[in-house]
Design a protein around this nucleic acid. Structure first.
Lengths: 146, 146
DNA sequence: ATATATGCAAATACTTTGCACTCGG
DNA sequence: CCGAGTGCAAAGTATTTGCATATAT
């Protein structure tokens, strides 16, 4: 926890940004909810518990900044809301998701399934891949069992 | 062209919807711009040329309906705008995209690259895949050559 | 000290909805 | 004919921005 905060602090400083209490509180919320896929509003509400004076605009600005620094990845599952997902330690690529169309749960796939596919795309289309988004929509194992 | 309109008409009727002039004009715009990735607003402006009395709300409603019928797929590339992409003739799955971070162009990959990956996900996670979204972000061949 | 960051409120962007009117089948 | 569909304007969400003030380094 503390080490990861420390690392974010370094990343901020490297890009000459400051680690303000608001930014720290936001990162803590993201760390504490690592498996969720919080919207800016969700983050705001949780940060407000720790730091009630924070404004929604600051949360938006912080999340945008963290996305720029690749601390978080921004994703949109099709409802019109941007969600923010902490990048796993040492992960080179954004992980994948499975969205259940029945119960709405979002599960993660951490393993990189796209290695071969990406090599092929780079070769066939001469497209330099820097990032990807892969989401499956379907029925999760919990709903299937019913 | 006309055959594809005809097919959409049948799909509408099958689900007991009507083919109104507004809906037809919207489908025509989508057909005429098949390789683009138009937002609702884009579609609206183009439909307005053919049928100036149409309202933006009708375009939204029509696109929503067409998405439901799987005539179009709705996708969001990360800017906050929903885009609509005509499903290719006979395609079982939604095709993939490459978004250029330099010039913003979106290119399509029609070949289904995910066959093996999906078999694996279904097996490993017991997740029934009904749809997918795969987008690569990077530098397109045109920008690379400069 | 001072450039950067913040909070608030107002502005903007996108999308949905209510309702009276219209029209396709 | 009549329920489905439309246009318009108003309401909802989600997100961004301007600006005066506060603060991390």
């Amino acid at each position: 926890m503390e080490e990861r905060i420390q690392r974010v602090k370094e990343q901020l400083h490297k890009a000459s940004y400051k680690l303000t209490p608001q930014r720290e509180a936001t990162v803590r919320v993201l760390l504490e909810n690592e498996s969720d896929h919080l919207s800016a509003e969700d983050v705001y509400l949780k940060v407000k518990d720790k730091a009630p004076e924070i404004g929604l605009a600051t949360v938006y600005r912080t999340l945008e900044l963290l996305a720029e620094l690749k601390v978080v990845d921004k994703i949109n599952f099709g409802d019109g809301v941007a969600r923010f997902d902490l990048r796993k330690e040492g992960a080179k690529h954004f992980h994948h998701h499975m969205v259940c169309m029945e119960c709405g749960t979002v599960d993660e796939i951490e393993e990189d399934l796209l290695d071969d596919v990406e090599k092929r795309v780079e070769r066939e289309f001469n497209f330099k891949i820097l990032d990807h988004r892969l989401t499956f929509h379907g029925i999760c194992h919990r709903c299937r069992e019913e």
